[in-house]
Design a binder for these strands. Structure first.
Lengths: 357, 357
DNA sequence: TTGTAAGCGTTATCAT
DNA sequence: ATGATAACGCTTACAA
C-alpha cells in the first residue's frame, strides 16, 4: 500500500510519535544518524515507514535556499528532435531526484528570457538549455552569477559554457567521401537559415569543410537556403540547383536537418528525377523515434542519414549538469557525441542492387 | 533590462525601503490595496519596480499550503502522440501561471503510482493524466480526496472523472462507409493489445460497431492483435488474414494507431500486394507534426487517416483542470473532440486517378 | 546522543 | 489604513 492519504504527516508528527525532538528526526532523514542510538534510529525508521512520511520539498527548499528544480529551455518543443531530448532529460533527472521544468521558447529570444526570469524566481537550481540564439548576453549574465548551465547542441559566443554536442567532422567527412565514391560530382547543401542557430551553422561549416577535403574545392556557392515561408521552398531551390548544373554534373543533396531533407525528398519525387541514379539525397537523422516509425527507412528509396544520438545528448547534458550541481565540476568542457552513418538507397548509384537494411 | 541579478530581494527589503511593514507590502502584492493610502501604494509600486522584486514562490507555497504545480502523467512519453500533447499542455498551463511537471510512466502502473506519490509530496495542485491502466484504484483514491484530476483520452472504470477524449463513433462510421463505397468487402482491424488501454479499447469497439452498422455483421473475428515483441508482427498477422480470405474478398485494414498502421504498410509493401486495388489501409493519425513531416502523406500510396486533434486534447484538458482549480467546476463531464477524415490514396480503389492532396 | 531555538519568505489573525 | 506577531515544515548552530 501507499501513503496515508488522510492527512499530511509532518516532521512534528513523527517526532511526537517517537518521543524525540524534530531535530533528531531531521538528522535521521538527512542521514546524520551516525551518532544516534540504535534504538532511536530504529524507532524513527519504524514510525516513518508506518506513516509513510516524506519531508515536504517546499519547506525544505525554503530553508535550504535551493531547490531540486531544473529549468530546461527548449528552442522549439514541437520538433521530433526536441521530443526525444525531453524524454531523455526527464528520465535521467528524475532518476537523480531532480525535477525538470520544461519551457518551450518557440524560437523566440524574448520568450526565452521571460522563461529564464520566471524560472529563476521559482528558484531553479540550474539550467539545461537548447537556446535560440548564438549571442545570448542574458544567459551569459546568469552563468556569471554562478548558476550552473549546460548547453545542449548549442554554442554561445564569448563565453565558455559546459556543452554537449554531436561530433560533426568525422561523420560528414565519411558521408562526403561516400558520395564521391558513388560517383556524385556535385555535392550541395540544402539548409534552413543558420543565422541564429549555432548547431545549424556548425553543421554547414563541417559539410563545406568535408567537401573541401574530399573534392578539393570550396562549395560555398552550392549552399541553398530553404525556408517554409517565403518562396524558398525545397522545390524552388531544387529548380535553382538544376538550372545551375553543368553538363555531366551528378548532384547529391545534403540536408542539414530532417525536415529539410524530407521536403527535398518530396521535391525530387515530384519532378520525376531518378534517385539515386540522377541525384542523391542524404541528411542527419535528428529523430530517433521507435524504429517502427523511422521515415528514412519507410520511404522509397530509403534515405542515407547521419545518425544523431539525441537520447545520449539529453542524458549526457543532464549528467553534466548534475555534476555541476554537486560541485564536482572541473572547468568548462565540451562533450562530443559520436554519430553513426547509415548508408541507404538514396545515395547508392553504383550498387543499387546492394543489401540495404 | 531585467531583474536585479545581484541579490535576491525579499518582502522585507521592500518594506524597509518603503518604510512600512511587510504586512502592507504583502497586501499590495496580493491586490488587497483597496484600503490603502494612495501614497503608500504608489511608493510600494515604485520600489518593487525598481528592485524588480518578485515574491518567492517557495515561501508562498509553504504558507498557503498549495502550489501552482501541476503533475502531468504520460503513459509513454516517447510516442509522437505524447510529444504533441506535452507541448500543448505546457503552452496552455504556463500561459495561466501554472507550472507543469511531466512524468513519464513508461507504461508501467507501478511507475505511475510512484510518480503520483512523489508529485503529491511535492505539493502539486492537480493532475492531468494519460494513464496506463483502466482500473486505477490508486488514482480514484487521490481523486476522492478532492485533488483535481482530468483524464486525457483515457477512461477509468467505476469513477466519474472529468475527461477529454476524441469523438470516435462518427468518424469511424464515415470511414467504414467510405470503405464500403470503394468496394472493400472485408474490413478488418489491426490493433495492439487493448487490455490496459482504454482508448484503444474504445476505438476497437467503435470500429466494430461501425462495421456492424455499415456491413451488417459482427467483425469480432477479424480483429488481429499486433505486437512488436512476440511473433505477432503486422507481417505475420497479414499472412494470417490472407490465409483466411474467401474467394472474392477485398480486405481493408484499419489500424488503431499510427505505429500499427505504419507496420502494416511495410508488411503490405513487402508481400507485393497492390494498394489500394487489392487491399486497403487506413488508421488514425495521432500525430500532428508539422505538416512537413507527415508520414501519411509522404509514403506511397498516401494513407487515409482519421485526424485526431491532439493539440486540442492537450489544451482542453488543461483548460478543464484550471477550471477545477479555480473552483469553477460543474460536476464530472466529458468533452469529446471532433475528428476529421482524410481520405487519401490507400483506400480509393475506384477513383485511383482522383485528386489527392 | 539529544534538544532548544532561530530563521527561511510569506500570509493571516488580530490589534490599533 | 497599518502593524505586531504567529504560523507554514523544515534545517542548523549552539547547548546540554
Amino acid at each position: 500500500m501507499h501513503m496515508n492519504l488522510e492527512s499530511k504527516v509532518t516532521i512534528n508528527d513523527i517526532a511526537k510519535a517517537v518521543g524525540v525532538s524534530k531535530t533528531t528526526v531531521s538528522r535521521y532523514i538527512n542521514g546524520h544518524s551516525d551518532m544516534m542510538s540504535e534504538r532511536t534510529r530504529e524507532r524513527i525508521r519504524a514510525v516513518i515507514e508506518m506513516t509513510n512520511y516524506q519531508p515536504s520539498d517546499i519547506a525544505r527548499n525554503l530553508k535550504r535556499k535551493n531547490t531540486n528544480l531544473i529549468g530546461v529551455l527548449i528552442a522549439d518543443m514541437s520538433t521530433p528532435f526536441s521530443s526525444v531530448l525531453v524524454v531523455s532529460i526527464s528520465d535521467y533527472l528524475s532518476e537523480c531526484g531532480y525535477v525538470p521544468i520544461f519551457a518551450n521558447c518557440n524560437d523566440s529570444l524574448q520568450k526565452e528570457q521571460e522563461m529564464i526570469d520566471s524560472l529563476l524566481f521559482r528558484g531553479v537550481a540550474g539550467f539545461l538549455v537548447n537556446t535560440t540564439s548564438c549571442n545570448n548576453n542574458y544567459l551569459i549574465g546568469v552563468a556569471s552569477r554562478g548558476i550552473p548551465i549546460v548547453l545542449c547542441d548549442r554554442y554561445i559566443n564569448h563565453y565558455n559554457f559546459n556543452i554537449v554536442t554531436f561530433e560533426q567532422d568525422a561523420p560528414f567527412f565519411n558521408l562526403v567521401r561516400h558520395l564521391k565514391e558513388e560517383g556524385y560530382t556535385r555535392p550541395v547543401l540544402f539548409t534552413q537559415c543558420w543565422e541564429n542557430n549555432s548547431s545549424r551553422r556548425r553543421r554547414k561549416d563541417a559539410i563545406l569543410s568535408a567537401i573541401q577535403q574530399v573534392y578539393g574545392y570550396d562549395a560555398t556557392e552550392d549552399v541553398y537556403l530553404v525556408s517554409f515561408q517565403n518562396g524558398l521552398s525545397a522545390a524552388a531551390q531544387l529548380d535553382a540547383l538544376l538550372g545551375r548544373l553543368k553538363p555531366g554534373d551528378i548532384p547529391a543533396i545534403i540536408g542539414t536537418n530532417s525536415v529539410t531533407t524530407v521536403q527535398t525528398y518530396k521535391a525530387i519525387k515530384s519532378c520525376g528525377l531518378k534517385m539515386p541514379e540522377q541525384i542523391g539525397l542524404c541528411g542527419p537523422e535528428d529523430w530517433n523515434w521507435q524504429q517502427e516509425m523511422n521515415w528514412a527507412q519507410l520511404i522509397e528509396p530509403t534515405i542515407t542519414t547521419i545518425d544523431l544520438p539525441v537520447r545520449d545528448l539529453g542524458r549526457q547534458s543532464a549528467e553534466c549538469l548534475v555534476h555541476m550541481l554537486k560541485g564536482e565540476t572541473e572547468g568548462a568542457r565540451e562533450i562530443m557525441l559520436p554519430c553513426g552513418l547509415n548508408i541507404r538507397e538514396s545515395t547508392c548509384r553504383l550498387h543499387s542492387q546492394g543489401d540495404f537494411g
